[in-house]
Amino acid sequence: MSAFGSVFMPEMAITWFDGSQWSEPEVVPSDSLQLHPGAHVLHYSSTCFEGLKAFRHEDGSVKVFRMDRNIRRLAQSSELLALPSFDEDMLEAMTRDILTRFKSEVPAPPGSMYIRPTHIGTEPIIGKAAVPSLTSCLYVLLSPVGDYFTGGDKPLRVLLDDKGMRCPPHMGMVKSGGNYASALQPIMKARAEHQADQVLFCPGGDVQETGAANFLLIDGNEVITKALDSSFLHGVTRDSILTLARDMGMDVQERELTIDELLERSARPGCEAALSGTAAVLTSVGTLIHNGQEYQVGNGGIGETTVKLRTALNNIQWGKADDKHGWLETI
């Protein structure tokens, strides 16, 4: 079986900004992209992207989940990286066009079509370390993916890092490759030394996010997660899960959460912790590792409420429950 996100549709939608205007979007082969070796993105990381999904429903229709929110976030990332601005309607049309071409390839549940809009700086100049790229490229890749939990739904082991940060605070809201690269070494070290699956960055004891997901603590009827600010990524899945938790009558608290409170609450029977993101939706955390000690979260297994919230979101995405919030758009 191919690794998640390693298979691509043979074509992609693309447009280029020449410094004054965007080219007419077109569909081209997705096996290569021609860039000058001095392209700004290759030297100064002027890159941002999004991850969203399209789902096949029982009636054969294809729906995209929260496309407007993801496109808006890419526009925000582009602005924060000083990349050329683009028309959000243009990107939506590009996404719809390429999805329509490969509509028949959208897998049935629990699979989906992963959509990766990407924006990169293309100006061929290596003297612009502190100056933005005047030209850029915007493209949309499609990758059919299967069930994220093909190997079984297993609770994660997460290392709490109170010294480092995933990225500089002013870059937190940007969905940029540089932020993922910044988290790579700490994650690799945590895997080698503690067999951890992820690192939860908690600078100064402030619980923020992992290298690739938002963090939620579920204690009885309470859902606690860091309040939105510029230091971390504003996850679309995070927002969706919190909305559904409120719909279920849960007490959603977006506030500061310290390591001390996290460890104290995690020892309680029935307590759960979870990571939220586009790929896995919501994944249970069974063990927290801090200062060489391991702390079991609740019973250390798959959280009952975590599964309930994930199922509720999946059911909307797959057309098995009403889309009361208008999150799905038909292709």
Rank of each mutant, 00 (worst) to 15 (best):
L91H: 09
L91V: 15
L91C: 08
E92Q: 12
T95R: 02
R96P: 01
R96M: 10
R96Q: 08
D97H: 11
I98H: 01
L99M: 10
L99V: 02
F102L: 08
S104C: 00
E105W: 11
V106Y: 07
V106G: 06
A108Y: 01
P109W: 07
P109S: 09
P110I: 04
P110R: 04
G111L: 12
S112M: 05
S112I: 03
M113L: 14
Y114C: 03
I115F: 05
P117A: 11
T118H: 05
T118L: 15
H119M: 14
G121T: 08
G121H: 04
P124S: 12
I126E: 12
I126V: 15
G127R: 08
G127F: 05
A129V: 15
A130G: 00
V131R: 14
P132D: 07
L134V: 11
T135S: 13
S136Q: 05
L138E: 12
Y139A: 01
Y139I: 03
V140K: 07
V140Q: 03
L142G: 06
L142Q: 03
L142F: 05
V145S: 06
G146Y: 09
G146V: 09
D147Y: 10
D147F: 07
Y148D: 04
Y148C: 04
T150A: 15
K154M: 12
K154S: 11
P155I: 07
L156W: 06
R157C: 01
R157P: 09
L159F: 14
L160W: 09
L160C: 03
D161S: 10
D162Q: 11
D162W: 00
D162Y: 00
G164A: 06
M165G: 00
M165I: 14
R166E: 13
H170C: 05
H170R: 10
M171S: 07
M171L: 15
G172D: 12
G172F: 10
V174Y: 07
V174D: 07
S176R: 08
S176I: 02
S176L: 02
G178M: 13
G178A: 10
N179M: 11
A181T: 13
S182Y: 04
A183P: 08
P186A: 06
M188C: 14
K189I: 10
K189R: 15
K189Q: 14
E193W: 00
H194D: 14
D197N: 15
V199Q: 01
V199T: 04
V199P: 05
F201D: 10
F201N: 06
P203R: 02
G204A: 05
D206L: 14
V207G: 03
V207M: 04
Q208R: 13
Q208D: 01
E209I: 08
A213S: 14
F215P: 02
L216N: 00
L217M: 08
I218C: 03
D219Q: 03
G220R: 02
N221I: 02
N221W: 00
E222F: 03
I224L: 11
